[in-house]
Amino acid sequence: MPQAARDKLHLGFLRIVATEAGYVGGMLVTNRLGRPLEFQCTTPVKANRTQEILYGPTLKPFLFSELIGVTLIDRLQVKPDIVLIDQQALLDLRKHVSLPIACLLEDAKDSHDLPDESRVSLGAQSLQVHVEHTCDVEAIQQWTGTIPGDADLREPLDRVREALEETLRSAA
């Protein structure tokens, strides 16, 4: 891959937080060095009692992926090449979008429990891809030389969390 294309790598960092008003999602798109390019966040989404009963255990994956995740990715003007998450419930988002999605694993030990075709390393982290989309491993591996080996990919997700807190504070 030419250097110019490598430099244009855009990373998406998606996180959803639970608040009293409902779930709020935030997506930060950065360049390969972590500098912010675009941020989108949703208004709180809350299921009513009927929805909670009828969706049962599928409610959270539905809200996270189909409702919040898809909306955020649709609205982005700067499209990411990879979406990084640290919530397993968001992995199902991959079923609804055509972008590689990878979940940061807590520590290296977690990655040993996974089959080789579902895990990949990027920066300083081990990542897990959706079990039905193991082709994402290859898609992510092509960027490994573009991201510094000591890059902490968890840190931008903390920024998303702080930005969501700031948004909620200002809305209060």
């Binding site: 999602g25 941020f39 409702l67 909306t71 609205r75 948004t167």
Partner: peptide, 16 residues
């Protein structure tokens, strides 16, 4: 009657 309709959440955008 119940239909699984969810309005799309609104978003707040910030471009740098």
């Amino acid at each position: 009657a119940w239909k699984p309709y969810w309005p799309k959440p609104k978003t707040v955008a910030l471009t740098f």
